Structure formats: structure tokens, C-alpha cells
Simulated scan of single mutants.
Amino acid sequence: MGNGLSMELHKWSSAAFPEEYALVCTSHTDKSKLSIFRLRVNPEMVLLRLAESVCYHPVRLFHMELSAQRDNMGCFNLGKVRVVVDGTSQLTQSKGKDSLSDLCERKRCFYEVMRKVESCGSVERVSWEFSHSYRVTLTAQIRYHVIIECDKEKGLRANIRGPFKCEDQVLGAKCVPRPLIQRVVNQEPSKAIRAFAESDFHGKEYILFHGASDKRGVIIDNTRALFHGNGNASEYKGCNIIMQTFVGKSLSP
């Protein structure tokens, strides 16, 4: 296939998350070079986790968490959107509360989180998009996206698109519409793969969104926290936190 990687998608269900996925990419020439993306979805929480070492650097780790709560009318509203990155790249960019991106030092791997708003007449459709790409030749990239939305009645939902092979034109890259996944497995991956994807790491935390009803926002810059776990099981040790508070209009999801 010319991409130098084998790709398989694992799909399964658990008591806490009706939808669980793991996209496992392995180098053909060096089996220790991995890119593992974990996605866990239920109506009240979406968890994303990326661990990859395909770009000739130490393992890079990324965690994203989105929550949703019901209001007094029984409708779901998007809650906090939180991202933790390993903090090793000097090319990480945070653009206010709407996006976060990171380009690895060799400029071969890239990921981005972005808030997207689409207008249809007087109706706004808001989603959050996570995208990840890595260069496989001088002129081509492998790329996939995850689109996350909060439905008023059904809660959070996520849709994986790709991976696709893209001819590199930077902006407006042309992607082959056929997915590159070679095998779909209807069970969770091995314990070793799960351990690699869920490794502890020292991270920097970004709060990209605070919840639909918040009028005050707090930017938390956590530069030396030991991050472990997901959701309510998360644990932080050795924190150094700088907090900046601002007052503004109510945020919209």
C-alpha cells in the first residue's frame, strides 16, 4: 500500500462505554514503532487517547476528555473539554479556547483539536474535531479525523473518518477516499497494546471549554503534573498550576 504501516481497527463494548475503538498502526520494518489511538464513547463522556512512536522520537502521548450533562429540561449540553499533552514539543500551539495543535520536532507527525461551527440559516451546528496525520513519503501523509458532537436527546457521539492517504498539498490536501484499514477486529486489543496506549505521563493541561452555562473561564496551565487514568479516576501528582481568570459572555457549546 506504500504507507509503510499495517493498520487494524478494534471495536468492542464495555459496561462503562457502549462504544470502544482502538486504531493500531505498526511499522512494517520495525514492530516497536507504533501509533495507537483509543476512543471511548458514552452519552456523558468521550475519551480519546493517542500514544505514538512512529516519528523517531520518544513516545508522544495525548489525552482528550469531553463531558456532557442533562439540564432541567432533560436535554444534554456539552460540559468541559479538557486536553492533556506530554509537553515535550516546543511546537505545541494553543489558540485561545478553540484549538490546540502540535507538530513533532521532525515535522513528520501532527495532531490538532479544533472547535468547528457550521451555520445553516439561524441554526448553528457545533462540533469538536481531533485530527492526526503522519508523513509516510516526501509527498504523502496518512490522516484520520474524529468528529464529536453533543446531541440534545442522545448525548455525546463520535465518528471516526479514515485513515486516508493524502497527497501533500498542505492546505487542501487531496485524500484518497478509500480507508486504509486492512483488518477490523471485533474485540479489544492485547494487554500490551492497551498498556502502551494508557501509559502514565507528565503532561500539560489545557481547558478548551468550560461548559455551556459558564460565565467565568479559568485557563489552567499545569506544567508538571503526573497524569494517570481517565475521567473520575484521573490522578495528578506534583502539580504546579498557574490560573488566570477572565469574565465574559456565556460560552456556547
Results as ranks from 00 to 15, higher is better:
residue 30 D to A: 13
residue 191 K to E: 10
residue 250 S to Y: 07
residue 140 A to H: 01
residue 133 S to L: 15
residue 49 R to I: 02
residue 201 F to Y: 09
residue 17 F to L: 08
residue 241 I to P: 02
residue 34 L to R: 01
residue 108 R to E: 10
residue 190 S to M: 07
residue 250 S to W: 12
residue 117 V to H: 11
residue 49 R to Y: 04
residue 144 Y to P: 01
residue 212 A to M: 06
residue 6 S to Y: 02
residue 45 M to I: 09
residue 48 L to K: 03
residue 68 A to F: 03
residue 88 T to Y: 10
residue 242 I to S: 13
residue 12 W to K: 07
residue 188 E to V: 13
residue 246 F to K: 13
residue 200 D to L: 08
residue 163 P to N: 05
residue 147 I to G: 03
residue 220 I to M: 15
residue 89 S to F: 06
residue 208 L to P: 00
residue 249 K to I: 08
residue 153 E to Q: 13
residue 221 D to G: 07
residue 107 K to Y: 08
residue 251 L to A: 14
residue 176 V to T: 07
residue 55 C to G: 08
residue 136 V to F: 05
residue 59 V to E: 06
residue 64 M to S: 06
residue 84 V to K: 00
residue 72 N to Q: 08
residue 135 R to C: 04
residue 44 E to D: 15
residue 113 V to G: 00
residue 28 H to W: 14
residue 149 E to A: 05
residue 49 R to A: 03
residue 209 F to R: 04
residue 8 E to K: 07
residue 147 I to E: 06
residue 96 G to R: 14
residue 144 Y to S: 05
residue 168 D to L: 13
residue 207 I to W: 02
residue 40 R to I: 03
residue 70 R to W: 10
residue 118 E to C: 14
residue 222 N to T: 08
residue 226 L to Q: 07
residue 2 G to F: 03
residue 55 C to N: 08
residue 229 G to W: 11
residue 103 L to I: 15
residue 22 A to R: 00
residue 96 G to M: 12
residue 189 P to Y: 05
residue 131 S to Y: 09
residue 123 V to F: 15
residue 157 R to P: 01
residue 157 R to C: 11
residue 11 K to T: 11
residue 17 F to H: 03
residue 80 K to A: 13
residue 103 L to G: 05
residue 237 K to G: 09
residue 32 S to P: 04
residue 224 R to A: 05
residue 162 G to K: 00
residue 188 E to W: 08
residue 3 N to I: 13
residue 229 G to C: 13
residue 22 A to I: 02
residue 43 P to D: 08
residue 219 I to G: 03
residue 210 H to S: 15
residue 177 P to L: 02
residue 29 T to R: 09
residue 177 P to M: 06
residue 26 T to G: 03
residue 74 G to I: 07
residue 240 N to Y: 05
residue 194 R to L: 14
residue 233 A to I: 10
residue 249 K to R: 12
residue 194 R to Q: 15
residue 192 A to W: 05
residue 228 H to L: 11
residue 48 L to V: 07
residue 193 I to M: 10
residue 80 K to R: 15
residue 69 Q to P: 03
residue 172 G to F: 14
residue 17 F to C: 03
residue 30 D to K: 13
residue 197 A to L: 04
residue 99 S to F: 06
residue 145 H to K: 14
residue 122 S to F: 11
residue 83 V to N: 00
residue 228 H to P: 01
residue 227 F to Q: 01
residue 155 G to T: 01
residue 222 N to L: 13
residue 252 S to P: 09
residue 27 S to N: 12
residue 99 S to Y: 04
